[in-house]
């Protein structure tokens, strides 16, 4: 254990990470956001999912620093009287879970399809044409389409239960060609290298060559697009929720909170929209900054002196 820790501590990765203030700060912020959102049931002052604790008389209270605000609701309340801080923490948890889940699905589909299509020439044309067709539909169009069908099938009441997995499925299915194309391009470059031929001469099976020899060599671009894709998936989810096709108001994500507050923005209750909006921007910004840093780190040609 000690040696593993020492190896990590002395690694190139940590060395470069600690010398990049942007990466460090982004990572700290991301860590705080992720930890606080997953610890929401423990640290949140109220439980926004429990209707018994909500009083409609508390609705639209401004944040605590405002003259009309109370210390009970630090960041004010939303239109239903839920504590905004707690709701935002729970909402961020949903956003992050959907983002990660969708990317896991995308990556799985994309890597398998990309590997097959790069390695087996016969499958290449058909798989890449499927990817092209998939890319020619916009994510939102597919999401609206599938979302509408499911809402009809299950009814609006039951939709609440399946909303999160459904969003993971929709965003995952819509974006896999990004991975498939990246992986395929790397596989095409890698499979011409001599170590692949050497592996074949050794007598290894094709599956083993694909999985153990080629895949690990294609992982650095995959890692880079993964960070960007997590941010994208969170944004897609927010956009869908904003359009009313994402998470329902009983279990709001950051996007649904922004929509909910949008109706009250002209009556002066700006915090319901602005505060979740800032949190969403912050979350996506730090993920993208970290993604940029990872890309620079994995591409030695970009090292500055």
């Amino acid at each position: 254990m000690v040696t593993t820790w020492n190896r990590i501590k002395n690694s190139d990765f940590i060395y470069h990470f600690l010398r990049d203030p942007v990466a460090c700060v982004s990572f700290m912020i991301l860590l705080v956001l992720v930890v606080s959102s997953f610890a929401a049931p423990i640290i949140a002052p109220h439980d926004p999912y429990n209707p018994a604790t909500i009083d409609i008389m508390d609705s639209e209270l401004p944040p605590a620093w405002n003259a009309e605000g109370t210390a009970k609701f630090l960041l004010g309340t939303d239109d239903m009287g839920r504590d905004l801080l707690s709701t935002m923490l729970y909402g961020m948890r949903i956003s992050i879970i959907i983002g990660l889940g969708a990317v896991a699905l995308q990556a799985f589909l994309g890597i398998v399809i990309g590997l097959l299509s790069g390695y087996i020439k016969r499958l290449d044309t058909i798989l890449m044409r499927i990817a092209d067709v998939q890319l020619s539909f916009s994510t939102y169009m597919i999401a609206i389409f599938i979302g509408a069908i499911f809402q009809m099938m299950f009814g609006v009441a039951n939709y609440e239960q399946i909303a999160a997995p459904l969003l993971i499925l929709i965003i995952g299915l819509a974006e896999w060609p990004q991975y498939a194309r990246t992986v395929r391009a790397s596989v095409l470059a890698e499979k011409k290298k001599e170590y692949v031929e050497a592996a074949r001469v050794i007598g290894l099976s094709n599956i083993r060559i694909m999985w153990r020899h080629i895949l690990p060599n294609t992982l650095s671009p995959v890692l880079v697009i993964s960070t960007v894709q997590v941010a994208n998936a969170i944004m897609s989810e927010a956009a869908l929720s904003f359009l009313g096709l994402g998470m329902p108001m009983t279990k709001p994500s950051l996007g649904s909170l922004i929509t909910a507050g949008f109706e009250y923005i002209f009556s002066g209750s700006w915090w319901i929209t602005i505060l979740p909006g800032i949190l969403l921007v912050l979350l996506i910004l730090v993920i993208n900054l970290l993604g940029d840093w990872v890309r620079d780190y994995l591409n030695p040609k970009l090292y500055k002196g």
Binding site: Y195, E197, A198, V201, I202, G203, L204, R212, H213, P216
Partner: peptide, 24 residues
């Protein structure tokens, strides 16, 4: 053929920089 390749007949290539997989 895989039962013979690498087993009873093996092959050595020109460039040892290229024939070993860099990530394993």
């Amino acid at each position: 053929m895989r039962t013979i390749r690498g087993n009873q007949i093996s092959m050595i290539f020109q460039d040892p920089m290229m024939t070993l997989n860099p990530v394993l």
